[in-house]
């Protein structure tokens, strides 16, 4: 009987725990869904918009990136003053990027070449898959392989 009750309590507890864990992930799922919707509706996932941007033939993408950064700067300046805290009550924190030059300019240029070719960066790749562009699977698999090649060659590259 005692064992039964104990077992019952433990079961409730572990159920509560897994529910809590599911909640923890649920909010990230919602953020992802929101991200996907915004990027489709903004046309930022359009191959044509990326091409147009790199041909300086439209303001659209510059407007999106510019206002995103401007709002982001504003948010981070306000949170720096302590007006916004994280969910856990600590300060909003953006990790500092390592100092360097070569890795950013070379790595950035290599990414830029790919971005303008396939018209999608690592977020839109998944979003486009969701919109029904199934051939994007090829790009995603190649991108995983590209990341793997970097990891293997890392120590031989200038950073």
């Amino acid at each position: 009987m005692v064992a039964y009750v104990l077992n019952f309590i433990i079961n409730i507890k572990s159920n509560e725990l897994s529910k809590f864990k599911r909640m923890k992930y649920f909010k990230f799922l919602l953020v992802g869904i929101f991200f996907g919707i915004v990027l489709v509706k903004s046309e930022a996932v359009s191959w044509y918009r990326i091409y147009e941007m790199f041909r300086f033939q439209s303001f659209h993408m510059y407007g999106i990136i510019g206002t995103a950064i401007a709002t982001g700067v504003l948010f981070l300046q306000i949170s720096k003053k302590g007006f916004v805290k994280s969910l856990k009550g600590s300060d909003i924190f953006v990790p500092k990027k390592e100092k360097g030059f070569s890795r950013y300019i070379i790595g950035g240029s290599i990414f830029g070449l790919g971005w303008a070719l396939i018209g999608a960066c690592p977020g839109p790749m998944y979003i486009l898959l969701g919109t029904g562009v199934y051939s994007m699977i090829i790009v995603i698999l190649a991108a995983i392989l590209g990341t793997f090649i970097y990891g293997v060659l890392k120590d031989k590259l200038p950073h």
């Binding site: 990136i65 890795r103 790595g107 790919g114 070719l117 991108a143």
Partner: peptide
């Protein structure tokens, strides 16, 4: 598509990040 994907995967990790 394969070359594009390779460039994106290699370049983003080399640069330590992408557009986001």
């Amino acid at each position: 598509l394969i070359i594009g994907g390779l460039l994106v995967g290699f370049g983003t990790r080399y640069a330590g990040g992408c557009t986001s």
